[in-house]
Design a binder for these strands. Structure first.
Lengths: 152, 152
DNA sequence: CTTGAAAAGAACTGCCT
DNA sequence: AGGCAGTTCTTTTCAAG
């Protein structure tokens, strides 16, 4: 764990919103010299704070109009191997994210599908057929907003 | 909605995993010329498929060791304004994402906190005090894995 | 910590197949 | 559509105040 000053926080805040900005552009925005901004960013990368740049895709424009969050409680019967379940679930192409969680459910999945019939196919033929699956709860995504979070 | 050939898909697959690659680097990887790769990426940007590059932060290294998913059902009493609720919830610094969903819950939040006592503070003093909040369910994140999804 | 400058590389443009 | 060669701009690195 590293500690940041206000300038570091400002850099992170700017980069979390748009990672496509150059060190030079950030320097101008924050009234820093270009080498200073560049060195600070490099320091954060080296410290492992910046884990990577990821591309955000517009799923709807690619024909995937439906996003569903699934909560899954594993079946209690028998010894269920978490590794086997995770292997099976990550092999489903429509699964975008797998969260192992504590609480009412054991896993929380983010799934995309072309439309609701397509989602039903994924649910019935890919998810429900897994022997480990117990209770399932679904939430269909209407809209989402990402926020900077407490770092910024 | 746009349709992609195999080359576009390969480009997206590469970029989803690491958005920090230049058009030239991608061209070499996929046996394309630099201008071709560049033109295709630009075409995808113009079409709105690439909605942006976001920086992924390692929350734990920044001192935020706890991530919790909250499902919130709005209170039925009175007319609850979704806009008011969204305004209040997005003003909480610890909230990283707000999903408006259909199903057992109305909203699904991703929240980060320094530790469990800190999360309890956020839950009690920030979330539960909102008049619109009805039923709440929490899932503490143990581990997560992001996958390319069906586009790649 | 800054400026200035040079080397490297990326982005973009026309022209040609 | 795809590629070649070239120009322009930015990033990155280094040297010096």
């Amino acid at each position: 764990m590293i500690d940041l000053d206000e300038t570091d926080r400002a850099l992170l805040r700017a980069l979390v919103q748009d990672a496509g900005q150059s060190a030079g552009a950030l320097a101008r925005r924050l009234n820093l010299s270009q080498p200073t901004a560049w060195r600070r960013i490099r320091r954060l990368e080296t410290a492992g704070v910046l884990s990577g740049k990821r591309l955000e895709l517009d799923a709807a424009r690619l024909g995937f109009g439906v996003t569903v969050f699934l909560g899954i409680k594993l079946a209690a019967r028998g010894r269920v191997s978490l590794e086997d379940f995770e292997r099976a679930i990550t092999a489903i192409p429509e699964v975008q994210a797998v969260h192992h969680v504590l609480g009412r459910y054991d896993y929380r999945l983010r799934i995309v599908a072309r439309d609701l019939p397509d989602f039903e196919r994924v649910l019935r033929r890919r998810i429900m057929v897994l022997p480990a699956v117990g209770e399932v709860e679904a939430n269909v995504l209407l809209s989402e907003e990402r926020l900077p979070g407490p770092i910024g």
